[in-house]
């Protein structure tokens, strides 16, 4: 097994897989030490391909916008992975140790483009997890969005009557 090189970790939620490769044969992947053999049967535009994995057939779309994350779409499900190589793990440790970190925004994010119909809170309100704080209308249906955590309303970016994009932070909570 001395051809096996390059270990990476794939992280998805609370699951971590470790993958190793054979540098003489890219059709082999060792996932958590189990061998998976690949054949790309058919390729289409738009990163879609039909791949056999240990002879089981999968039709997938592979989205890899950057080196650190990859998304695999099958019919109905999307699987997202963060890729950690040995260098990126070191980098993360360094970043953590130097005290710098991303400011994560806690709050309600628009899950799709739409229009804010109603804001049910004010800055300074004490709210509980799941409280429905804002109603967004899209595709002719109203969706009441609940808070992912309990806390205090810090900032309200949603304005009644104004359109929002997917990913817009509507309500900031701390």
């Amino acid at each position: 097994m001395n051809n096996i090189q390059e270990e990476i970790k794939l992280v998805s939620g609370d699951k971590t897989y470790s993958a190793a490769f054979d540098h003489t044969d890219t059709s082999k992947v060792f996932l958590d030490e189990k061998l998976y053999e690949f054949k790309v049967l058919k390729e289409y535009n738009d990163n879609v391909s039909v791949i056999s994995v240990n002879n089981k057939v999968f039709t997938v779309k592979i989205n890899q916008d950057d080196r650190d994350s990859i998304e695999i779409l099958t019919t109905g499900f999307g699987y997202n992975y963060e890729i950690k190589t040995s260098t990126s793990s070191l980098l993360e440790q360094f970043v953590r140790q130097s005290g710098k970190g991303k400011n994560k925004v806690n709050g309600i994010v628009a899950p799709m483009p739409g229009m804010v119909v109603k804001v049910n809170c004010a800055v300074g309100d004490q709210i509980l997890e799941n409280d429905k704080l804002v109603i967004v209308e899209a595709m002719k249906m109203e969706n009441a969005l609940g808070s992912p955590l309990s806390g205090t309303v810090k900032k309200i970016n949603a304005i009644e009557g104004k359109a929002v994009d997917k990913g817009t932070v509507l309500i900031e909570i701390e």
Binding site: S12, K15, A19, F21, Y36, I51, Q64, I72, T74, I83
Partner: peptide, 16 residues
């Protein structure tokens, strides 16, 4: 199918 899909992700990463 999670394990298969994770393997596909690793395979794609390695290829790219």
């Amino acid at each position: 199918d999670e394990e298969y899909v994770a393997a596909i992700a690793a395979f794609a990463y390695n290829k790219n």
